[in-house]
Design a protein around this nucleic acid. Structure first.
Lengths: 112, 112
DNA sequence: CGTTCATAAGTAGCTGCCCTACATATAGCG
DNA sequence: CGCTATATGTAGGGCAGCTACTTATGAACG
């Protein structure tokens, strides 16, 4: 999968990954890897700044902890993040519906 | 729909719109508008440069014509463009499958 | 005849997301 | 001691798509 296809959908992925559980950044990357069957291998330079963005936006909050001598910043959704996730999900559904319509029915098969 | 969601999928839309017919730029914009039920309203500053890109890439070719005193540059798919369209379609399918999987099953419902 | 709207194509410049590459630190293994 | 895995982060860049503007013709309206 070409990497820049994610453009504009990364927030949805991160919010969905944090839905119903709290994870630290590194674990989020692994969760996305496994949850996508290996298709998504996001670099830290993509995920960490994105999490900061989401925190600034009030969609997630974070707490520091130390596990086995290593510092972790554990993220969890806020209520606003929950709402944002719902909005992202419906936006995604609308988006795919539109693109599917054009890719499948926008060409010569368009029998109005 | 947020505008930058298109990132990386615009080529697919343009190729699909030209599949089986030839259209000039302005008509492509209108076709996308109608084909998407009004959801896609791409500005000329997005579409025209994208068409030039596709032409440079060899996916489309263009011919000038004059209709009613107005100059039109009419585009049509090349064979490479046809192949590119097929590739874009399958890439789109893969992409949606991955994202759908994460948005729907990447959270607390992930019962491995 | 002048203004405005629809048609038609295009460029210049900006923004911002995501990527590449690098820096930092600890624990465990050999 | 070096290497790998774990864990977080920044700096800088590329480029796609957007905003705003320019150019040009034909038709309609007064």
């Amino acid at each position: 999968m070409k990497p820049d296809a994610l453009r504009g959908h990364l927030d949805a992925l991160l919010l969905a990954t944090l839905d119903g559980r709290q994870l630290h950044g590194y674990a989020i990357i692994e969760a996305l890897q496994q949850g996508s069957g290996g298709a998504l291998d996001l670099p830290t330079g993509t995920v960490y700044p994105a999490l900061r963005r989401l925190e600034r936006a009030g969609h997630v909050t974070s707490d520091w902890s130390t596990v086995g001598g290593r510092k972790r910043r554990t993220y969890r959704l806020t209520q606003a993040g929950q709402r944002a996730l719902q909005a992202e999900r419906s936006a995604w559904r609308e988006f795919t519906t539109v693109i599917d319509g054009v890719l499948g029915g926008g060409g010569k098969w368009a029998q109005t």
